[in-house]
Every structure is written in C-alpha cells, then in structure tokens.
Design a protein around this nucleic acid. Sequence first.
DNA 1: AGTCCGATTCGCT
DNA 2: GCGAATCGGACTA
Length: 232
Amino acid sequence: MSVNNLNIRRLLKEDIDKPSKELSIYLLGKILVRKLEGDTILKGRIVETESYLGGEDKASNTYNGRRTAANEPMYMPAGTTFVYMTYGMYHCINISSKEPGAAVLLRALEPLSGIEAMQKFRAQKMKSKKNEIKTSKLCDGPSKLCISMNITKQNLNKVDVTDPENREIWLEDDPEFEKENIKIVHTSRIGIASAGVEWASKPLRFYILNNDSVSKRDKVAEEDFHSDVDTS
DNA sequence: AGTCCGATTCGCT
DNA sequence: GCGAATCGGACTA
C-alpha cells in the first residue's frame, strides 16, 4: 500500500451529520468512492454540490413537508443516499443531511480513479460512441456522474454511505487536498426555474472555482474573486 | 385510470 | 442554441 493511502479515511456519521447547506460546502474536495463487482474502484473528487431544503424550498422534493415512499430517504439520517430518476432516463444522487427533508445533490466530480470503467459506462449509453470523452467531461453533471459510477435507483437508493461496512459506496477525506487554497463559488441552482424566481435564485449551489469538471460556470458570481483586477 | 412533468443529456442545426 | 428522448410517480377525479 502506498504511503499516501495511510492518511485517507472514510467519512463517518459524525462528519456528515451537518445541515444541508453546511454539508454542501463541506463535501467539496471530498472523494466519492464506488466499488463495483469484480472489485474495480472508481473515485471522483466532489467539485459541485447543491443544497435542497425541506419545507419552504419550492425546488425540493420535500417542499411543504411532502413525504412519500419515493422521497423517504431525504427524511432519513444524514448520509443516506437518495437516488431518483429524472426525465425518464437519468438518475441523480443526493446525500441526506441533518435536517429531516433536506439533502445535498452531487452535481459534478473530478475523475481520479477508474477512468477506463467510467468511459465504458458513458459510451454504453451514448448513440455516437466514436470519440473518447475528455476525462474532465466524464462526471460534469449530476446524471453523468451517476452513469460513470454506475449509480441507479435500483442499486444504490437508500443506503448509508457512512456505514463502515458499506462495500459499494462511501466517502473519503483527502488529506492531500488543501481546502484553504481553493475558492468556492456560491450561486443559484440549475434546472429549477419552475420553482419560481425566489427559490430558483437563492445561492444554494456551490462549486470549486476553476475546476474543469464543474457542470456550469457562473461568470457573474466568479467576478467576486477578481474584482480588484477589473480594469473597467 | 388518465394526465402531466421534470434537480438532464445528447445530437443536430 | 434547440428540441427530442422517455417513464416513474404525484395528483386529479
């Protein structure tokens, strides 16, 4: 085992047991690990997240306290996966947070290990399998990362990623990753216009500035980080 | 039982 | 940049 691996540790319940917004930011830089049958390991650094709150949040599946069999994982203890199908053909994965009815949507990963397998999963699902996908484009969207990591509602909904016995999916800390050296952009969430401007515009999406795997950059929000260089 | 609609992605214009 | 693909589940009656 390499020296680097000695400091890597799985995240536990106590690490994840945070309110949705706080957890969204905490998870940036952490590593999502997926172990396939045959022991292939896929890893990706979380570089973009979104927070979904309960109750008031019109964009949330749990808006107004709605509670059904389908959204039950959002009410379960922090660290529970909530995988749902969207547009009849894609999946999105969330990690439930401390508050009942709230969760964090994983929107993008920077692929670190198992790139070959990710390429294979993505190619399977596409019509034109001609050209190879750029590594940074393998997981640059909530459904793309589910395809690349073979995450579906059938296989990984409602499981505890903080369970030390979980051999399929978990989170790891990366001691090499210097969180103090990155900039985190706070901006509006994607694809929720029908929730109305008030909730659609709230800054509940978070991503690592200048990371190539981020799904959609917000140039305006990014200006906050270089306003002193502005020449206008 | 029937209708409506996405927390998206891809392929083509 | 735009429209199609595609289906589970919430909601209506």
